[in-house]
Write a protein that binds this DNA or RNA. Structure first.
Lengths: 204, 204
DNA sequence: CAAGTTGTTGACGCCGCGCCAATAGCGTCC
DNA sequence: GGACGCTATTGGCGCGGCGTCAACAACTTG
């Protein structure tokens, strides 16, 4: 059985690049970095391995592009926030988050999943940047985006809250141990408590 | 400059194994998996590379041992919990956690740090196991370890709370954006709120 | 001091990665 | 429509990391 190799086809750089990227996203999504070879990615894309290096330089650089790409999900900017009590506004933000993350929840969780020892500084930088954007959203939602006192502490606490959001979303979408309503309750309650009960104790 | 190679010394298996393991822990702690070679580990331990495989089989298996090892920190079992209000008991547990994690906080944080896309199932299993133990501690601390109603939901929410604990501890020990007192406040307040305000809404 | 035990070594084969010169699609111009 | 040039694409080279295994030597035992 002599496999007829498909005739070599020439594509626009952007097109080819994106095609390879799609394959890489899928493979890196199912297995850890070290368990995915560029050979495999190239084969998946029906392309010579050298081409992967041509477009992305290094396996590591390709990986970073993948991470960046998968975080470019929740950019659909702010919907108008309702006026009302703190709880009302928080509730609305939580709902917005749940709605926008629902379609690709599992993928989103995979990106920010833990892998363990020895974190990569570059990867962390990318995740950190995404976190800052998320913090800005939350601050705007609770109406504290203009305040200067205890600024850093507030941001730090919201980053921590963000970690809980990720973990809880994971419980819901991957493990199925929480219903969507329970997740909604947890996220709302916690953020309200954070703003109402914890923030006031920070240095003025 | 002919380097005088140290005379070959023969050690007890346990001893040698532990020595190699120490080096591996240090190296995997500072760089991601793929950036650490077994050659490097062996060199660090002043030993032939083959010996690493002899004791740990595969690089990957060695890595798993490292992860397991670094999580074997907080096993110093329950100190007696004080009687008193929910807040008092939670406060005591948080203090206990902070005290026991303080000495090696940075290392501890490194273990549970995120690395991104494509999580390793084996690593996750280890982390998950450690999480369950932590959940048991928390449940005991808040005095809910006997309850059966809404059991899974409660555990899931506490796992999510645990993620916040990790992130907040990281803010304190690595980034320095929170003081220890602020961290203590955040952890206490959040857990109290979780038990007092969120749990009651779960199905009976 | 000889023989056995076993911790330890060094090299072999394989495979993945980064690089680069050669090759061949595809548009262009006469 | 055929020759030409541009560049997307290939395939192979060299290097280095990983797993294996037979040989070696440190230490023990009689």
């Amino acid at each position: 059985m002599t496999s007829v190799r498909a005739p070599r086809r020439r594509l626009e750089p952007d097109e080819r690049r994106e095609q390879i990227l799609r394959c890489a996203i899928r493979l890196f999504g199912e297995r850890p970095y070290a368990a995915v070879s560029t050979t495999e990615i190239a084969a998946e894309a029906g392309v010579a391995r050298g081409l992967v290096n041509h477009y992305f330089g290094t396996k590591r650089e390709l990986y970073l592009v993948v991470v960046r790409q998968m975080l470019r999900v929740p950019s659909s900017a702010a919907t108008a926030l309702p006026r009302g009590s703190l709880r009302t506004r928080v509730q609305a933000s939580v709902d917005w988050f749940l709605d926008s993350v629902s379609p690709h929840a599992r993928t989103w969780v995979a990106v920010i999943g833990t892998e363990g020892v020895g974190s990569d500084p570059d990867v962390e930088a990318i995740l950190a940047e995404a976190d800052e954007v998320a913090v800005d959203h939350v601050l705007a939602a609770v109406g504290l985006d203009g305040t200067a006192a205890g600024h850093e502490q507030r941001r730090a606490m919201i980053r921590a809250y963000g970690a809980m959001v990720k973990a809880a979303t994971r419980e819901w979408s991957v493990r199925g141990t929480l219903s969507r309503d329970e997740l909604r309750l947890l996220l709302t309650q916690s953020l309200v408590s954070l703003v109402r009960d914890t923030f006031p104790h920070l240095p003025k």
